[in-house]
Nucleic acid binder design. Sequence first.
DNA 1: TGTAAATTGTTAAAAGATTAACGCTGCTAA
DNA 2: TTAGCAGCGTTAATCTTTTAACAATTTACA
Lengths: 205, 205
Amino acid sequence: MTPQKTIERISLYRRVVSDLLAKGKNRAYSHEIAKLAGVKSSQVRHGFMFIGTNGKANSGYDLRELQGRIEGFLTADKPDSYCIVGIGNLGRAVLAFFHARHKNLEIKAAFDKDPALKNRVFHGCRCYSIDDAKEVIRKEGISLGIIAVPAEQAQAVAQILIEAGIRGIVNFAPVPLKLGQGIVVENVDLAMYLEKVAFFTRNVS
Amino acid sequence: MTPQKTIERISLYRRVVSDLLAKGKNRAYSHEIAKLAGVKSSQVRHGFMFIGTNGKANSGYDLRELQGRIEGFLTADKPDSYCIVGIGNLGRAVLAFFHARHKNLEIKAAFDKDPALKNRVFHGCRCYSIDDAKEVIRKEGISLGIIAVPAEQAQAVAQILIEAGIRGIVNFAPVPLKLGQGIVVENVDLAMYLEKVAFFTRNVS
DNA sequence: TGTAAATTGTTAAAAGATTAACGCTGCTAA
DNA sequence: TTAGCAGCGTTAATCTTTTAACAATTTACA
Ligand SMILES: NC(=O)c1ccc[n+]([C@@H]2O[C@H](COP(=O)([O-])OP(=O)(O)OC[C@H]3O[C@@H](n4cnc5c(N)ncnc54)[C@H](O)[C@@H]3O)[C@@H](O)[C@H]2O)c1
Ligand SMILES: NC(=O)c1ccc[n+]([C@@H]2O[C@H](COP(=O)([O-])OP(=O)(O)OC[C@H]3O[C@@H](n4cnc5c(N)ncnc54)[C@H](O)[C@@H]3O)[C@@H](O)[C@H]2O)c1
């Protein structure tokens, strides 16, 4: 199985490759990609082993083919579908961010418990009552969820999502979720990142 | 030096300890803290070595003292000050999130290039022109920055911040910043997290 | 065509992080 | 008291990730 850190970097390489193509470049060396991604060239080549490489010694990688391979590796045949729960400050920002971007990922439904938000459309995404989550998730074939509700509600919301068939969650609430085996969770804890940077700014350099 | 991962967990323990205290608990065992933080108890004890522990065999940790030690370890004497650049969807959400929370971290100034935002106050934080960044940062004694501008602008903004004396950056723009030695950067790449969860939901379990 | 220079793919070494192990201490209860 | 248990702190072992090394290729050009 491909290591988590490698997947993170491959996601980065995808963007780098896409930028290079946009600039009219057709080929690149591992060290060029590395520089743009902020990693070592050996790490780039090592990572490419997981996606099946096609570089040529002394002339690098064909960027269009590389792009295809990364896409094929990273994403499914049909775009993966997310739903998002909690259309507050953060939820809306996330919807704004995704609106009309990201061909391979889409946010197909939003949920909130606030009745005032029901049936409103935020950045192209319809908001449903959290009570209808199971039904909507099943109907839309959604398999992934974003949690952007207050910390106290996060665990309960996660449970609802999982009962509805969600298998992977990106959690913005600052609480570690307790979930069954086989559910993929990524906790994105903003306050923690700020503390971490503050700490290392004080304690290294 | 304390490993990055350990710092991340200690930040988590802080919250766990604070929750336990709020519930009226006075002591806890490493395995209780571990459970709540979603880690192993040996990891908790191992991590505590870095902050200097005071647990007692067979009766765990005094939570109030532990809290004090974590605070002392993680945070400086005066609260660390951040500024944030880019008061768009994400920037506003972050300000909302921080408003009146987090005693040990504060966001003291916001910057944007949009003149319409100048001098407006968002969730208690005044927005200045990015052109005044150096002056405001110096005057307010700010040492940390959050970047929430479009990707194309991120590098230039980072440069401005560093010239103004900022030593640590939390970067939400999906581009790796190229910065000099000694500057601490944490890239928080939302799209990448969504891709990562999508990938592992498809490819494990 | 052949030689030098550069870069790949892969394997091996080094570094870093997690988990387990265990001696020792303090608590509880006979 | 003392026996027995439970849990701390620390060190050692395992596991993961990163970095380096290098033989095999490809290109460029004499
Ligand atoms: N705003 C940020 O920048 C930020 C950053 C990092 C993390 N977070 C975390 O993200 C979460 C949301 O933050 P926010 O600032 O958007 O909060 P918010 O209060 O603005 O929004 C929360 C939304 O969740 C809805 N909600 C509450 N309980 C619900 C439930 N059981 N089911 C469905 N919807 C429910 C509310 O109606 C509200 O619309 C919090 O846990 C916060 O700690 C926020
Ligand atoms: N919205 C999200 O949930 C989200 C999530 C992850 C990452 N991001 C990233 O965060 C960044 C901001 O996202 P957003 O949705 O808030 O965008 P946005 O367009 O809503 O806001 C960007 C803000 O930055 C300001 N700005 C632009 N250039 C500037 C400069 N040189 N100096 C100062 N201010 C400047 C603009 O005036 C605007 O107010 C982007 O890089 C985006 O990719 C956003």
